[in-house]
């Protein structure tokens, strides 16, 4: 019985995480900077990380990335999204585990690390395309870091409400 519930919850949360990514694509906010997006799905991931644990968050975020990658974006972009997701989740887990910070810092650091990871991967492509390392370090990096903080804080605001109001973990684990 417990296991059935567990599977059902995981499926529900995975669906929510996938849909949040889709909902975000529907909102016509153009942030003007290529590569910067809100990353609403991170709300769901944060919620799972706090209410369940790292293992569940890892499973859901990786599955979400695979599903989104195959349905909405091209599988060629998977290398960006999977690495960004995995690194940001691990960073978030470490910062959460340190115990010194709240959801806000955890989420913002997740956003930062997600963007930096993608930048590192994109960096190989951009360096070949002729953009200087200095330009990447003094323009793309700070812009993406700031964007990561801002979007991370926004997500934390929503995730914070969810974590406070929904408590599922007691009868789950």
């Amino acid at each position: 019985m417990k296991k059935n519930r567990y599977v059902a919850y995981m499926g529900l949360l995975l669906a929510a995480a996938v849909l949040l990514g889709y909902v975000e694509a529907l909102i016509p906010i153009d942030l003007m900077i290529p590569g910067v997006k809100l990353g609403l799905a991170n709300c769901a991931i944060l919620f799972v990380l706090y209410s369940f644990g790292l293992k569940e968050a890892l499973i859901i975020s990786l599955l979400r990335t695979l599903i989104i990658g195959f349905i909405f974006t091209s599988p060629a972009m998977l290398i960006y999204s999977i690495s960004g997701t995995a690194v940001s989740l691990l960073i978030m887990a470490i910062i959460k585990k340190s115990g010194h910070f709240s959801v806000f810092a955890v989420s913002a650091c997740g956003g930062i690390s997600h963007n930096i990871t993608q930048l590192i991967i994109a960096g190989f492509v951009m360096l070949n395309a002729g953009a200087g390392l200095l330009r990447i370090l003094t323009f793309y990096l700070p812009v993406l870091v700031m964007a990561g903080i801002i979007t991370g804080l926004l997500n934390a605001f929503f995730a914070n409400i969810l974590i406070k109001r929904i408590s599922v973990h007691s009868d789950m684990l």
Binding site: L141, P142, V143, V145, M146, I149
Partner: peptide, 14 residues
């Protein structure tokens, strides 16, 4: 403190 510091460093770099 953490986010402010990171934001400031990014701003200086920019």
């Amino acid at each position: 403190i953490l986010l402010g510091t990171v934001f400031l460093i990014a701003l200086i770099l920019l």
